[in-house]
């Protein structure tokens, strides 16, 4: 497809399609799509159920370059079945992650070592509610395949998660997102395991009122996750801003990039568990209670204040590791 790369840079990340995000975050005209719409590999399961299908099954995967780095990109399309993962788009996602690792290994084999300025990168642009229920079992299994691969990427290939599209990173995609080395979000970013409607349905409206938009944003939204240290960069809403943030990360040594990991070691288990214990002990009822504990005094203003101001006044959870 013809996409004007320059135009993409100023385009809203939130409004961009999966393919636009994929093309725009790598260097100009470098993106090569795997199993694109022309291959017409659609979901056989949606077809059997009489549902609409897409020729790319709602995901854009491929490889582009950022400077000398091969960048493996997985970009989810929330407008198609909520970006949810099934057998075909799930295989595209998990296997593209695997290719980032394979490329690292090939590079190591060829050069003996993988230089910092050339190491492969894996980027996922999240826009998904998790498992596609029409093919739920295959969707569940692909999540485990992704998680094992992310675990394999550790300390080799930087894995960068982007959130800031229409759906967010929900369901099992929530933890696929937070398994990243670095998480980048705009103010539309959302990360969670159980969506608001499901909590209300399963537990009750007294637990979570899914019609309360403000509650959703302050619980799952990027600002709360930034305060907790789950989101590492909170940025303005354009594809170019996401790209610039990524460019500033990729040349750093792996040991530095992995410093913002949220999971993956016994030390991080203890650090995360401390927050759980704190929340239980202080009987946290709302994100604002936790924001206060970390030193924020203006908690009622936080959700609405301009992003620049938020970033200049916010107090974040101190990381020990």
């Amino acid at each position: 497809m013809r996409i004007n790369w320059e135009d993409l840079q100023s385009k809203s990340f939130y409004q961009a399609t999966a393919r636009e995000r994929a093309y725009g975050i790598v260097d100009k005209d470098t993106f090569k799509e795997f199993l694109g719409p022309r291959d017409k590999m659609t979901s056989p399961h949606l077809l059997i159920l009489g549902e609409a299908v897409e020729f790319d099954d709602g995901i854009t995967v491929g490889v582009g370059m950022i400077k000398k780095h091969p960048v493996f990109v997985i970009s989810q399309e929330g407008k198609f079945v909520g970006g949810a993962l099934g057998e075909v788009n799930g295989a595209k996602m998990a296997y593209t992650m695997k290719l980032a690792l394979k490329t690292y290994e090939k590079m190591k084999e060829k050069y003996g070592t993988v230089p910092d300025d050339r190491k492969p990168i894996c980027i996922v642009s999240f826009d998904s509610g998790g498992v596609r229920l029409h093919e739920a079992n295959a969707g569940l299994l692909m999540h485990s395949e992704s998680m094992e691969t992310i675990w394999e990427l550790q300390n080799k290939v930087p894995y960068i998660a982007l959130t800031g599209s229409t759906i967010g990173a929900y369901g099992a995609q929530g933890f696929v997102c937070l398994s990243a080395d670095v998480v980048i979000a705009n103010d539309f970013g959302r990360i969670g395991l159980t969506g608001p409607e499901v909590i209300q349905q399963e537990v009750g409206k007294d637990e979570f009122d899914a019609s309360d938009r403000a509650l959703i944003w302050r619980t799952m939204g990027a600002r709360s996750k930034y305060i907790l240290g789950d989101v590492d960069y909170l940025i303005k809403d354009s594809i170019g801003t996401f790209r610039d943030t990524i460019i500033n990360i990729v040349d750093q040594p792996m040991s530095k990039i992995s410093k913002t990991r949220k999971v993956g070691s016994p030390q991080l288990v203890e650090e995360n568990l401390e927050v759980v214990k704190l929340a239980a002990e202080k009987k946290i009822k709302d994100s604002k209670d936790l924001w206060k504990i970390y030193g924020n005094t203006n908690v009622d203003e936080i959700p609405e204040m301009p992003q620049d101001k938020f970033l200049s006044v916010v107090k974040r959870r101190p990381r020990r590791i």
Binding site: S144, M147, W151, G174, F175, C177, L178, S179, I191, G192, L193, T194, V198, I199, E202, V203, E207, F208, T219, M220, S224, L228, D230, K262, V263, G264, L268, V269, N272, V275, V276, A279, I284, K285, D286, S287, L290
Partner: peptide, 21 residues
């Protein structure tokens, strides 16, 4: 996994990811 509000505030996500890793 627990579909609760506190789990979303603090991060059930990171709990399950930690166990998998």
């Amino acid at each position: 996994n627990s579909p609760g509000k506190i789990e979303e505030i603090v991060g059930m996500t990171k709990g399950t990811a930690s166990y998998q890793f």
